[in-house]
Simulated assay, not measured.
Amino acid sequence: MAICNKCGQQLPENANACPYCGTFVNEQNAQQAASQQVAQPVDPQQAAPQQVAQPVDPQQAAPQQVAQPVNPQQNYQQNYQQNYQQGYQQAPQQNYQPGYGAPQQGYAQPYVTPDMDVQQSKGIAWLSYMGLLFLIPMFVRRQSDYTRFHVKQGATLFAADLAYGITYGILMAIINAIFPGHYSYSYLYYMPSYYVHSDVYNVFSVLLGLGGIFFFVLAIIGIVNAATGKRKELPLIGKIPWIATLLDNTVYKQ
């Protein structure tokens, strides 16, 4: 039998309300359920254990990356390959004039340093001081800045030597006209006659012939400079700009 929670009397079966105090059974059940829903204290033993940071085992920890010693040869090869690939795109802008290996418009060429240019060109640049043979390095190594320098010096030397030779011939012809020589005749049939210049002509011939020795010495100096990788102007005539300007405006014009 159910008992009324308010007055303590027994309730009949299937009764909706207490016949003594009039309290509804459903209201009693609701109050009883509400009284049971009270926050119960949390049992520390039954509570979920918190995650405590465990000490890290040095042996199980991930090993740190230790800097490996750099191999100088491998590092040099990587830097050389990287610089060589970058040279196809652009050439350095400082302390370098466009010459052999410098990228031109519309072309991608590997960059060649000035030292490399000297090593590749000095074997043919010395021909610039061998008269007309300066045409060989002028066209074979046309893009080489080192070869250009010696071609201009050699062409200037050739032009100066040619001008001196023409002047020498004209002066000696004038001297021979002013101080003519004579023919030497022999009475023997096997000794032909020959022309003998005057003493004045012979003196001027010796004096003016020293100029030919001067140009020969300049050629030797230019050959030594070009073959040893030096960029030095020839004495006296090296600064004459006419031939160099002519080549820049014709053969070496970009």
Results as ranks from 00 to 15, higher is better:
residue 148 R to F: 01
residue 77 Q to A: 11
residue 152 K to G: 01
residue 96 Y to E: 13
residue 105 Q to L: 14
residue 147 T to Y: 10
residue 140 V to E: 09
residue 191 M to V: 14
residue 29 N to T: 06
residue 119 Q to M: 14
residue 94 Q to G: 00
residue 246 L to W: 04
residue 27 E to T: 06
residue 230 K to M: 09
residue 230 K to Q: 15
residue 225 N to C: 03
residue 131 G to W: 08
residue 196 V to T: 13
residue 77 Q to H: 11
residue 123 G to Y: 06
residue 239 K to W: 05
residue 128 S to H: 01
residue 80 Y to M: 14
residue 192 P to D: 04
residue 225 N to G: 09
residue 32 Q to P: 03
residue 195 Y to W: 10
residue 61 A to R: 14
residue 225 N to S: 09
residue 142 R to G: 04
residue 216 F to C: 10
residue 121 S to V: 07
residue 169 G to V: 11
residue 46 Q to W: 06
residue 22 G to K: 13
residue 87 G to Y: 07
residue 102 A to D: 10
residue 190 Y to L: 08
residue 185 Y to D: 06
residue 3 I to T: 15
residue 101 G to R: 04
residue 162 L to D: 00
residue 53 A to Q: 15
residue 115 D to C: 05
residue 164 Y to F: 14
residue 95 N to W: 02
residue 157 L to R: 01
residue 41 P to N: 15
residue 75 N to Y: 08
residue 70 V to Y: 01
residue 57 D to F: 08
residue 192 P to W: 06
residue 254 Q to S: 14
residue 115 D to T: 12
residue 251 V to R: 09
residue 89 Q to Y: 13
residue 216 F to R: 10
residue 11 L to S: 09
residue 215 F to D: 07
residue 28 Q to K: 12
residue 21 C to E: 07
residue 151 V to H: 02
residue 119 Q to T: 11
residue 169 G to P: 02
residue 146 Y to E: 02
residue 115 D to P: 05
residue 118 V to G: 04
residue 43 D to Y: 03
residue 94 Q to R: 11
residue 236 L to T: 01
residue 215 F to C: 02
residue 182 H to E: 10
residue 29 N to K: 15
residue 24 F to R: 15
residue 152 K to R: 08
residue 232 K to M: 05
residue 23 T to C: 06
residue 75 N to P: 00
residue 4 C to D: 03
residue 69 P to Y: 04
residue 181 G to A: 11
residue 220 I to S: 08
residue 12 P to D: 13
residue 25 V to N: 13
residue 233 E to Q: 12
residue 66 V to W: 01
residue 182 H to G: 10
residue 168 Y to C: 08
residue 81 Q to E: 09
residue 186 S to T: 07
residue 81 Q to I: 05
residue 56 V to C: 12
residue 152 K to N: 00
residue 57 D to K: 12
residue 135 L to V: 15
residue 109 Q to W: 13
residue 94 Q to D: 00
residue 158 F to C: 03
residue 247 L to P: 02
residue 241 P to I: 04
residue 247 L to G: 05
residue 196 V to N: 11
residue 125 A to L: 04
